[in-house]
Amino acid sequence: MNTKPDSAITEADLHAYADGLLAPDRRAAVEAHLADNPDAAAEVANWQAQNAALRDAFGATPAADAEDQALIEALGRQRPQRFGRLAIAAGFALFFLAGGGAGSLITAGLQRGDAIAVAQLLPQASKTNYLVYASEVRHPVEVDASQEAHLVGWLGARIGKTLAAPDLSARGYALVGGRLVPFAEKPGAMLMYENAEGDRVTILIGVNPDHHGTEFRFDETDGVSTFFWADNGFAYAMSGAVGREALLGLAHVVYAQN
């Protein structure tokens, strides 16, 4: 404490002064005290500088985004007794005891029906898929549209769904092909379409234990638009560097055909 023994000013006053939490009359008393006590004044100035630096470093409030809303809605749908992370951890432990392989360990983490994780991962995963693969000139897909039957049979088997490539020709988009991609620690299917202008859009389809999907959600990051939705145990996301309305039109077609 830098306060003089006979002074009524306490260290708490000095903190409150630095934090702007003092009443005006008390503030004047502290200022008079600081004028007589250079050491205390220097310390208070240092605290104020810390405050400024901390607010500068952390003060910006992150904006609420589509993921936040998806997360809250997913939490709101949970039953109160839903298995949490402890249960997942216990699941891992059981796998260890049972001698489960590393591969099955990883999927065990999400087998609890972690709809939240899927809802959070989906738009980001779809955007990344789009950014990585749609820009590829020579190898954007593993299996191209000339082998459509093979493509949908193969991808469908991997994700556990009878898959048909949606027909987007009415909106000017033709199938380029598709590839197997990782999604939420499981296999996912990606289909790519292209229009006459060379604009590409991608559809990501993965297993989603959440059956409650009733709407399209929209996310736009880094110039990439994404609509994503849940339907009958699967998660769908459609991404492209196209306008919201154009993409929504395509998403409606995809939804209608599934």
């Binding site: 952390f58 003060g59 910006a60 409030t61 992150p62 904006a63 609420a64 936040d68 809303q69 809250i72 809605e73 939490l75 709101g76």
Partner: peptide, 14 residues
């Protein structure tokens, strides 16, 4: 409750 949580979520993240 959900709407209220969503409203304070940015500050919670901060």
């Amino acid at each position: 409750f959900e709407t209220d949580v969503l409203a304070v979520l940015p500050r919670l993240k901060r």
